[in-house]
C-alpha cells in the first residue's frame, strides 16, 4: 500500500494552469526525486501536499485513509505527519538551533521541555551539529542552518519528508554536508519526496525519478533508465541541458 497517493491533482494561479492532473504514488521508505525545468510546478506540487497551497481539483491521500485535500481535513494534525524543508531554510531567527527544533514538539505535541530537548540534542547529533545547539541561525553557515531545518522537521516524527531544492541557496562547498544528511536519512528508511537539481544525488539515492514539465509528469522510472535511456523527447532535452 502506498504511503502517499496523489490523484489527478490540478492547481491554478488565476489563469495559469500550473498542475495539470498529477498522479503519483509513493511507497513507505521510497525516495522519489522530482526533476524538471524552472516553472514546471515542482514546488507547487510539494506545497499542495501539505496544503501550503490549496489544490483546485484532485485528491491527496496519506496512509490510505486520510484525505489531505478534504475540506474538513485536520491540517494541523496532517502537517505533523509531513515534514518539509525549504530552499531558504526558514529557520526562526529569534530562537537558537535547539529552540528551533523543540518549539513545535513543545507547543503542538505538548511534549515536556526536557524530553523535547533530549530529542532535539539527539537530532542535532544526527545532523552533526550537537555543538551548535545554543547558536542562533545567523551564527551558522547556510549548510548548518539547513541541517538544523532538517532536524526541526524530523522532530515532529513525520512519516514523509518533502525537500524543495534544499541545496540551491547554498555555496557549492556546503552542498555536500546537506546531501550527506539526506542520504543517511534515506538509508534509515525515511520516505522522501525530493525536488532537486543535484543529479548525482538523484541517481545515487533516488528509487524513482519523476520528470515534470509544464504541470504534467512527462516520464518516470528508475534512475538508470531515466538517466541513460529516457523515452520522451522533452526528458532527453532537459537532461542534455543539465548533465
Amino acid at each position: 500500500m502506498s504511503l502517499l497517493k496523489i490523484i489527478d491533482l490540478h492547481k491554478y494561479f488565476r489563469e495559469n494552469h500550473v498542475l495539470k492532473g498529477i498522479n503519483m504514488e509513493i511507497k513507505k521508505g521510497e525516495v522519489v526525486v522530482v526533476i524538471g525545468p524552472s516553472g514546471s510546478g515542482k514546488s507547487t506540487l510539494l506545497r499542495c501536499i501539505n496544503r501550503l497551497e490549496e489544490p483546485d481539483k484532485g485528491k491527496i491521500i496519506i496512509d490510505g485513509e486520510i484525505e489531505i485535500t478534504h475540506p474538513k481535513a485536520d491540517l494541523n494534525k496532517i502537517r505533523q505527519r509531513i515534514g518539509m524543508v525549504f530552499q531558504q531554510f526558514n529557520l526562526f531567527p529569534h530562537l537558537t538551533a535547539l529552540q528551533n527544533i523543540t518549539l513545535a514538539p513543545i507547543k503542538v505535541k505538548k511534549m515536556p521541555r526536557d524530553e523535547a530537548e533530549a530529542l532535539g540534542m539527539e537530532l542535532l547529533a544526527k545532523v552533526g551539529l550537537a555543538d551548535k545547539a545554543h547558536e542562533y541561525p545567523h551564527q551558522l553557515s547556510g549548510g548548518q542552518q539547513q541541517r538544523v531545518a532538517i532536524a526541526r522537521a524530523l522532530a515532529m516524527n513525520p512519516e514523509i519528508m518533502l525537500f524543495d531544492e534544499v541545496t540551491s541557496a547554498l555555496d557549492p562547498e556546503l552542498v555536500k554536508e546537506v546531501l550527506d544528511v539526506m542520504k543517511q536519512l534515506a538509508r534509515d528508511g525515511m520516505t522522501m519526496l525530493v525536488v532537486t537539481h543535484e543529479m548525482g544525488f538523484a541517481r545515487e539515492v533516488g528509487d524513482r525519478i519523476v520528470f515534470m514539465d509544464e504541470g504534467v509528469i512527462v516520464e518516470e522510472g528508475k534512475p538508470e533508465k531515466i538517466f541513460t535511456d529516457p523515452q520522451n523527447e522533452r526528458t532527453r532535452k532537459f537532461l542534455s541541458m543539465i548533465l
Partner: peptide
C-alpha cells in the same frame, strides 16, 4: 517563509503568530 515553516510543523495560525 516564517509562517509557512511554522504551519508546516503543525502549528495553528495563532500559535505561529504568537511564537514565531
Amino acid at each position: 517563509g516564517q509562517m509557512e515553516a511554522a504551519r508546516s510543523l503543525g502549528m495553528t495560525y495563532l500559535q505561529s503568530m504568537r511564537y514565531v
